[in-house]
């Protein structure tokens, strides 16, 4: 609770928290802010007002205008906040869990376990992140498209359950599947940073006497690791994770912009900006097709970074003595 209090006292983080709250209101209140048209089959597909390719400027009917193909920008921006939260939070959640488990086991057991896990981590890190994600997305889309996914179906179903609340017993929705491939690709190449930080933290805390003390009362290895060491090592991870949410949304937007993330017409900010690719020479005239979704992304990422920054200050052990965290 003191953490939240401090977040609200610090001016930078307060701005971050306010912006995030607005996004949360927008995401939760989407059906009221931008009502779903009656004939809509999927609320996340942006309604179209005709099929003309030329974007039309903001008007009373479409307050942010419409983009190429007459997709309503306001509707897309509002419903896109839901997509952003889902994607950012789920990717961060999964990468953080993978990273924490890999790093904790690596640091705790040391020796050859550490050696194998850390070399594996380094192999993954050797790929340039964005390129790896792009390649992986296209590979995954091909695999899933052919229906040869096998074990990968299982992973996609987990992600689908976490992201869309999709019942794992049902088949994957093709519209969602395209988003899932992008998310899986980012997850594949996104867990290493956390794993390394976690390993370092566990290495540091496992030398404390309370680790031995826990052993003398007869606790098992897993109990010591997860009940005694993890709570001492996990705070810096919170900081990284909160910043990662913004970063992953940005990466996913890049994938969408390249046509690999969300499907055409899906309420996703990156996907909306991709409509602007054909209008780069006349952006002065059609500014609204980039500015609204663009600002939405920028503020979203900025807010998470502000919160992450403030969290780092609050949780920094050197500054911690002043209060009681």
């Amino acid at each position: 609770m003191t953490i939240i209090k401090k977040l609200l006292k610090n001016p930078t983080s307060l701005i971050g928290v306010i912006i995030l709250s607005l996004y949360i209101i927008m995401a939760v209140g989407a059906p009221w802010i931008a009502p779903i048209p009656e004939n809509s089959r999927d609320a996340y597909m942006i309604p179209r007002d005709g099929f003309s390719t030329t974007p039309s400027p903001p008007s009373e009917e479409h307050i942010f205008g419409t983009t190429e193909g007459q997709y309503d920008i306001f509707y897309g921006v509002v419903w896109g906040s839901r997509t952003a939260f889902r994607i950012g939070v789920v990717i961060t959640l999964i990468t953080t869990i993978i990273g924490v488990v890999v790093g904790a086991i690596s640091g705790f057991y040391g020796g050859w376990v550490d050696e194998i896990l850390m070399r594996l981590t380094e192999i993954f890190q050797a790929f340039p992140f964005l390129l790896a994600a792009i390649t992986m997305t296209s590979v995954l889309q091909t695999i899933y498209g052919r229906g040869e996914a096998g074990g990968l179906i299982f992973m996609a179903k987990i992600v689908a359950f976490l992201t869309f609340g999709q019942n794992p017993a049902e088949n994957l929705d093709p519209v969602q599947l395209q988003i899932l491939t992008g998310m899986l690709a980012i997850i594949f190449f996104g867990w290493m940073g956390i794993a390394r930080v976690m390993r370092g933290n566990i290495l540091a805390v496992k030398e404390f006497e309370y680790a031995v003390a826990a052993k003398t009362i007869g606790a098992s290895d897993m109990r010591i690791l997860f009940n005694h060491l993890l709570p001492n090592a996990v705070f810096p991870i919170l900081v990284i994770a909160s910043m990662n949410i913004g970063a992953y949304v940005l990466t996913f937007a890049a994938l969408s912009f390249l046509g690999l993330g969300a499907q055409r017409g899906y309420a996703d900010w990156g996907q909306m900006i991709s409509f602007a690719r054909n209008w780069v020479p006349s952006l002065v005239e059609h500014w609204y097709i980039v500015v609204y979704p663009g600002v939405a992304i920028i503020l979203f990422v900025l807010a998470w970074n502000l919160v992450g920054d403030a969290l780092r200050d609050i949780l920094d052990p050197r500054l911690r003595g002043s209060g009681s965290v």
Partner: peptide, 13 residues
């Protein structure tokens, strides 16, 4: 029981 009571209790529990 150990020498240093300051470090043999886990600070976050």
């Amino acid at each position: 029981i150990f020498q240093d009571p300051m470090t043999s209790l886990n600070p976050v529990l």
